[in-house]
Design a protein around this nucleic acid. Structure first.
Length: 628
DNA sequence: AAAAAAT
């Protein structure tokens, strides 16, 4: 009878498989960085002497060879765990507040930062968490990787590696990789790490949850560890000079990246600090003053810090944009341009730049190429997500029936609940008001729900997310703030209560389930208001071997007027196709570099066959790839 | 038209 029941079964199964509560990172990989031969400029960290010339931007104080500047830390002495005493920072006003036992002494500066460093692995001691980790790492089906389509294009693409051992990341980082129980690099890591270690710029399409964070963190951390201890200029005692900047579009995602990066950087001497809005700035300022090598930030707060001259980007060696296509869309682009092009950041080609996202529309690739120099494009099929591991269903539900329909799904799911725990269900809606309304309605109908959206305070947002992750509140109603990047283990079911207008947003939303090799279920409520999405949705589902309802196919055919806008970005699977290879963009060999080699990775995997080719459209003639 | 992001 009703297919509904079987969906609930799916969700329940998925939940059973995933258990509940607790969260853990599931990225993993390795890398190091060196950047040989980029024209004539030799990055400071590759010199065997202190950087003393051509600073990227005029420094107020040329005193580079003087004593190490205020917020510098001593060298990352090779391999030595305690790299030596840390200079005291110029933070006269620092008044503890946090630590006990670190008495006001600003004296010896015996590296309190590091000694105080919280062991990020401690909380994983409990067996349950341990079990998750084991499961998650062995749980990823590594054999299946051989079937994951990979495409690279660009000049002299460094070959992929098969193990972490093949790349020299340094002992401290290797130890953290072991602590994270990362056995083998994921596909995106296998390719991105050597590219990054080779000093190359990178534009990478890969789903979050496939190991993306580690793919850009490892080379950055390794590169900083190996680099010459930076001689940072003195601008003002309170200005800090991070060596790496990681930007992301939401506060929660920045927090998540920060948490992961802290694990990877544990006892490496590399300091990771996060800055985002909605939280008191003073505490963030104090953290910054204690020294920062890698700054993770959301754009607004960073601009604030830059304008206050509390942060300078002059020493940036690495720039990473996570969810890069979102960062460059209309809402964010001006801020990003300001940060990257109009402050004191070294230009493309001097710094190393890495852009990551699961989706990369052509137009955005074109914008993004401003930030890159002779970059390599990498597209990796997802480990799980929207391909095999997520079962996608679309139901025709009139606007007025949505609530009761959702209720039916939840009821069935609860009936099938495992171990008395309800499966985690993430419900996406279009508006903030709609989120509040639905949350309220669910609560008064006996379903414990909470909500996350931009009108809530940061405290409320974080509480909601925590409560959901732990299973305390097994239903989370969210706007697109939660659509990207968030790694919430054990989400069994994503419901698109309101479908997004953009197919890429759909891809990101359903990517919140089916992570790290787990199965997941994604249900969408479709009605006449979503006509413009029909074509792209039907194509996407077909590409990922999903059952496409006949009525949706009819809608898709009818709704050809929806045309251009919602077509799959670039026509490729996973939004992954180098725009430079599209004839309409290759303007007669100008700076867009026409040469590049291109290769399709391991096996054009029959499994991914299925003819997306025709529908997506728009390729230049004669272009082939693993996905064609 | 909506969401996100600084105060």
């Amino acid at each position: 009878m009703s297919t509904r029941t079987s969906w609930a079964d799916l969700a329940a199964n998925s939940a059973a498989e995933n258990v509940t509560a607790g969260s853990s990172a599931n990225n993993g990989a390795a890398g190091t960085t060196s950047a040989p031969g980029r024209s004539t400029y030799v990055p400071p960290h590759l010199r065997n002497r202190p950087a003393s010339s051509d600073p990227p931007a005029p420094a107020p104080a040329p005193a580079y060879n003087g004593p190490v500047a205020s917020n510098d830390r001593p060298g990352y002495g090779g391999g030595s765990r305690w790299g030596g005493p840390r200079n005291d920072f110029n933070r006269s006003g620092y008044s503890g507040g946090r630590a006990g036992g670190w008495g006001g002494g600003r004296s010896g500066g015996w590296d309190r930062g590091r000694e105080r460093e919280v062991n990020p692995f401690e909380d994983e001691d409990d067996t349950e968490e341990q079990a998750f980790n084991e499961q998650e790492n062995t749980g990823i089906n590594f054999d299946a990787y051989e079937d994951i389509p990979v495409e690279t294009s660009g000049d002299n693409v460094p070959p992929a590696v098969n193990t972490f051992a093949e790349v020299d990341l340094g002992e401290a980082l290797n130890q953290n990789i072991r602590r994270c129980k990362y056995v083998k690099p994921t596909p995106v890591q296998r390719h991105a790490i050597p590219i990054s270690l080779g000093g190359r710029d990178l534009m990478a399409c890969a789903q979050t949850g496939s190991g993306k964070t580690a793919a850009f963190c490892f080379p950055i951390i390794s590169g900083i560890m190996r680099g010459q201890a930076p001689q940072r200029p003195v601008r003002g005692a309170r200005t800090v000079y991070p060596l790496a900047l990681i930007l992301s579009p939401t506060r929660e995602l920045s927090m998540q990246i920060h948490d992961e990066a802290k694990k990877f950087a544990y006892q490496t001497g590399v300091k990771v600090v996060v800055a985002y809005g909605g939280a008191p700035i003073n505490q963030q300022l104090r953290e910054l003053e204690r020294g920062v090598d890698i700054l993770v930030a959301t754009p607004g707060r960073l601009v604030d810090l830059l304008e206050r001259a509390r942060v300078s980007l002059q020493m940036i060696r690495y720039l990473a944009l996570d969810e890069a296509d979102r960062m460059l869309d209309m809402g964010f682009e001006p801020q990003i341009r300001k940060i990257v092009e109009q402050m004191d950041m070294p230009p493309a080609g001097v710094r190393q730049t890495m852009l990551f996202s699961a989706t990369f529309p052509k137009e955005i690739q074109r914008l993004a190429s401003d930030f890159l120099a002779s970059y390599i494009f990498l597209a990796v099929g997802r480990v799980g997500s929207s391909t095999d591991l997520i079962v996608q269903r679309v139901e025709f539900v009139h606007e007025s029936d949505k609530r009761s329909h959702l209720m039916d799904l939840l009821h069935a799911q609860r009936a099938n609940g495992v171990q008395g725990k309800q499966a985690l269900t993430l419900v996406f809606v279009e508006t903030k008001k709609g989120a509040d309304a639905l949350e309220h309605w669910l609560c008064i109908n006996g379903f414990p729900a909470t909500t996350i959206h931009g009108d809530r305070t940061q405290q409320e947002r974080e509480l909601a997310l925590r409560s959901f992750k732990t299973g305390n509140t097994p239903i989370l109603v969210a706007t697109d703030v939660a659509a990207r990047g968030l790694d919430i283990p054990h989400v069994a079911h994503v419901v698109n209560f309101d479908l997004p207008n953009d197919i890429d947003d759909y891809v990101h939303r359903i990517g919140r389930t089916g992570r790290a090799g787990k199965t997941g279920l994604a249900t969408a409520f479709f009605n006449e208001n979503n006509a413009s999405l029909a074509k792209a949705l039907a194509e996407l589902m077909q590409e990922s071997n999903q059952e496409v309802p006949a009525w949706l196919t009819r809608y898709a055919a009818r709704a050809s007027y929806g045309g251009g806008r919602n077509r799959r970005s670039g026509g490729g699977r996973f939004g992954g196709r180098d725009f430079r290879r599209d004839s309409s963009f290759s303007r007669g060999g100008s700076d867009y570099y026409s040469g590049g080699s291109s290769s399709a990775g391991y096996g054009a995997s029959g499994g991914y066959g299925g003819g997306g080719g025709g529908g997506g459209g728009g390729y230049g003639p004669g272009v082939t790839s693993a996905w064609d």
